[in-house]
Each structure stands twice: as C-alpha cells, then as structure tokens.
C-alpha cells in the first residue's frame, strides 16, 4: 500500500529560483539562506520519495481571471514550466503520476471535496522553487509530482479548516492506493509577507514562529485562525500559509518535527521551512 512518509513545508519565493538559476547562491545576501537548506537536501537524498503531492498556488500562470479553481489537482503525465514574463525557468519539466493523481481526485471527490481536475497546467515558481530548494539542480527531478494548486490570489482563499480537512482526505486517499508508493506531501508558500501597496515589506517573526510551533503541536488551533488574522498580522500574502495546513492534515493527528529553518529576508518575504513526520 502507498504510505505518506513525510511532510515538508517551504516558502516558494521566486527570487530563490533566480538566485539558483544565475549561480548567486553564495553571495553574501543569499548564502545564509541556502545554508539553511543544506541539511534538507542531504536528508532528501537519503529519503527521496517516489511521489510528492505538492501543494502550491499558481501566480496567474496556468490560471488567469478566466478560470479560478479553489482546489485543482494536476492529473497529467507531464507539466511544462511556465513563462512568467522572463521566459521559463531553466529546470526540468515535471513528471506527474496520473494513476495516483486520478485516484486521489476520485477519493477526495467521493469524500466531498469538489476538486477541479486539470490536465494542462504549466507550473510556475510556486511549484518549481520548492523542488529546486530541496533537490538542487538535477538534470531531471528525482521523483514524480502531483501538483495541487490552491487559489490564494483572488480573495477569499479556502479556509484553514477546509485546507486541513482536505489534507486529511489526501491522507486517506494515499493510504487506500494499492501499489507500494512512498509519498511525501509538501505545503508551500508564506511565511509572513506583503508584496503590494504602501505596507509592502511587512514581516512578523513572532507570528511565523508561533505558526510553526502550532503546526506541529496544535494544528486544530491553527485550523480556526480566520483569514483576517493572517492579513492583518502576517501581510496580505501571508494568507498563503493555509496551504501548509493541507500538508499537516495529511500527516494525521500527531506529528514530530525533524527540522526547522527560518530566515528573513528573501527579497520581500520571511522564509520558513520544516520537515515533519507522523508520530
């Protein structure tokens, strides 16, 4: 049977991809940040999954204002790298796992989560930066990826409670898949940041650290955090953190923390990264 072996969270700041693609990771500005991911890259080499269910948000790349799915699951064989205005990132195309993706879609829909099934979905930095942070710069990605895109661009995003419950449904779906597949669930985005308007640059380190503590020990508490609290305390784009709750929900009620890294800033954003396992 398939099994969820770990949950990973990480910010997905586009500038991290640019720093890697241009070979700037050892600059004074970026070095401390990339150092914080060295342990995780090593850990990933020793714990490479077969499949990553990668929860992220599309940043007006696959989805314009024409179509705005709240939860979309990528069921294709392959996902192209999106052009976000400066040409696609020079990273390998992303290989999907259609059989497991369709299984998760069917299971989640029967579980009352009305997923949008997507077969053509160019993936942007929201998905590729986490892969680059955890796997470096390989010629091809070492595992297959099932993208789950969550709308956090047009307000309101799904509630924290809905996200946590979707994570639980993904957990049930994976564990009812017959083949022996090692699956990790990744939740990306955040942490505190605001990219727009005169309040741009807002960071709240106390909020972020408390969020990481609660993600491990009190996810039920986080589940009830209203959107207004993210907007006010963690910046208008900080609400992306609801995507970490999908990962956390997939791990079951108890989790242990294997690793945590936190750094300010990456461009406009506080970067947080954790490795969790079911306990």
């Amino acid at each position: 049977m398939a099994k969820i072996t770990a949950g990973i969270s990480t910010s997905h700041v586009p500038a991290l991809g640019v720093a890697m693609d241009h070979g700037n990771t050892e600059d004074e500005y970026w070095a401390p940040l990339f150092k914080g991911y060295e342990h995780s890259r090593q850990w990933m080499q020793e714990n490479t999954p077969d499949v990553v269910v990668l929860v992220y948000n599309d940043h007006a790349s696959a989805f314009s204002l024409e179509l705005i799915p709240t939860f979309a699951i990528g069921c294709a064989e392959q996902f192209a790298i999106a052009d976000e205005g400066w040409g696609p990132r020079p990273v390998p195309a992303v290989e999907g796992h259609p059989e497991l993706a369709w299984h998760i879609a069917q299971s989640a829909i029967e579980d009352e989560f009305d997923m949008t099934i997507v077969n053509r979905m160019p993936v942007d930095h929201g998905l590729t930066v986490p892969l680059s942070m955890l796997f470096g710069q390989p010629k091809s990605w070492p595992c297959q990826v099932i993208p789950i895109a969550v709308n956090v661009v047009v307000y309101p995003p799904p509630s924290g409670r809905r996200c946590y419950h979707l994570g639980q449904a993904i957990g049930r779906a994976v564990e009812s898949f017959a083949p022996d597949v090692d699956v990790q669930v990744w939740g990306t985005g955040g942490m505190s940041h605001q990219l727009q308007g005169p309040r741009a640059g807002l960071i709240n380190q106390a909020f972020d650290q408390a969020f990481m503590n609660d993600l491990v020990a009190n996810p039920e508490l986080l589940m009830h955090k209203p959107h207004i609290e993210y907007l006010r305390e963690a910046g208008s784009e900080g609400v992306e953190l609801v995507m970490w709750l999908i990962m956390r929900g997939a791990l079951g009620p108890h989790a242990k923390e294997l690793y945590r890294f936190y750094h300010v800033p990456a461009s406009n954003t506080a970067v947080g990264h954790m490795i969790l396992q079911s306990a």
């Binding site: 661009v153 047009v154 307000y155 309101p156 605001q194 727009q196 308007g197 005169p198 309040r199 741009a200 907007l231 006010r232 208008s236």
Partner: peptide, 9 residues
C-alpha cells in the same frame, strides 16, 4: 488595514 488592497470579487 492600512496601505493594503485585498483582491476580492
């Protein structure tokens, strides 16, 4: 929220 526009409907 000062200096912030929420991109709602």
């Amino acid at each position: 929220i000062p200096g912030t526009t929420i991109f709602d409907g």
